[in-house]
Amino acid sequence: MRRGEHPSGAVVGGILAPHPPHLVYASNPPQNEPRSSGAGAWQELLAGYQRLRASLEARVYDVLVVHTPHWKTRTGTHFLGVPHFSGLSVDPIFPNLFRFQYELDVDVALSQSIHDHARDAGLSCQMMTNPEFRVDYGTLTSCHLVRPAGDLPVVAISSVRTAFDYCNEAGDQEMLALGRATRAAVEASGKSALCLASCSLSHRHYTTEPADPEDPAFESIHNENQAAWDRHILALMESGQSRRVFDEMPDFTDQCVAETRDGSLSWLLAAMDFPEVAGQVHGYGTVIGTGNAVVEWDLSR
């Protein structure tokens, strides 16, 4: 089936697509101003993204829908609502690594539709229509690593702070509703969507950085508790137990300081309607102590 010939829309796949700017830095794309030292850290993740891109080459999809932890909103879920953005993104946390010139097309129609479906489900939502808004680096990083050509429109969804303001369970329930709204809007759109959860797994950082941030000697998981939880969650994904991942999410988030607290993975699982197909783990590695996995669910089979 060719692009544009879908009788009805579908979420054709889901990707756990972590967003460490380090991976963009190490890849040296022309859009990024800093140049990597090439010292060799993060190879497992870089190779994982490479394997993901190879896997996606044969796949057909029209739009990337990304849920990002680095657009943090406390007044409900927000959606990009301007057709095109361009500008310079400087990471406020790692400005030494990520100063990225970007161009981003937005599928405003689909964005608006997900917004409307979510609002009808009772969620607090906003469209972001200020053309001077600087797109967050989570969206930019994940989209670039998944599809460096940047030739597809994007829907970017903010991370509402419900889990932080109330509790993990409340946050996950809101993401369940948002994921279902996303799925319904995609199906109604007639488009094929690849959904990206732009987040790490365990998320305890080291708070220091070596002189060369890419020095592999300084890279490891922050502690064994984080690694054990990451292994457990990945095993569930690989065995097709996505519902169990969701069920255990509040504990994983709490006990592993996981970035799943920001909602991206829960949203993704709901948007995919809790697939029983195995998630393919393309790579797992650490970035400044955090655990990151590149995982693909192919729902087109």
Partner: peptide
């Protein structure tokens, strides 16, 4: 910040910012 403490040292930073929530 995550990596320790960052101190702004650009003598004349000039740009713009749009609040994540209050962009309207």
């Amino acid at each position: 910040s995550i990596i320790g403490h960052q101190i702004q040292a650009d003598p004349q930073p000039e740009w713009w910012v749009v609040d994540e929530d209050f962009h309207s």
